[in-house]
């Protein structure tokens, strides 16, 4: 099984990197781009687990280690 974990800053938290990227895109003329939020992406290889077990494990790891719940939220995909 493989789990993908997407970590982003919570909407309420200002993202200075995303803001700078958006500014750069706008100055390049990409006026169709609005706000930009930068995040992190993790691929976890999970050995011999059912989809439910894999999801539970990925959730635990994301909550405890991969994301800091004070400032970040995360989304998980298992396949």
């Amino acid at each position: 099984m493989k789990a993908k974990v997407f970590v982003t800053l919570k909407p309420s938290v200002f993202d200075p990197q995303g803001h700078t990227i958006a500014d750069a895109l706008h100055s390049m003329g990409y006026t169709g781009v609005g706000d930009v939020r930068q995040g992190k992406y993790f691929e976890l290889e999970l050995n011999s687990l059912s989809a439910d077990q894999a999801r539970a494990l990925a959730l635990e790891v994301a909550d405890k280690v991969l994301a800091n719940p004070v400032i970040e939220s995360y989304r998980i995909e298992v396949d």
Binding site: L9, V13, F14, P16, Q17, T20, N68, V70, I71
Partner: peptide, 15 residues
């Protein structure tokens, strides 16, 4: 990060 103090650090505002 250990939760011994509250809050978190973000990248400096001016990067």
């Amino acid at each position: 990060e250990a939760g011994l103090l509250p809050g978190a650090m973000l990248r400096n505002q001016d990067l």
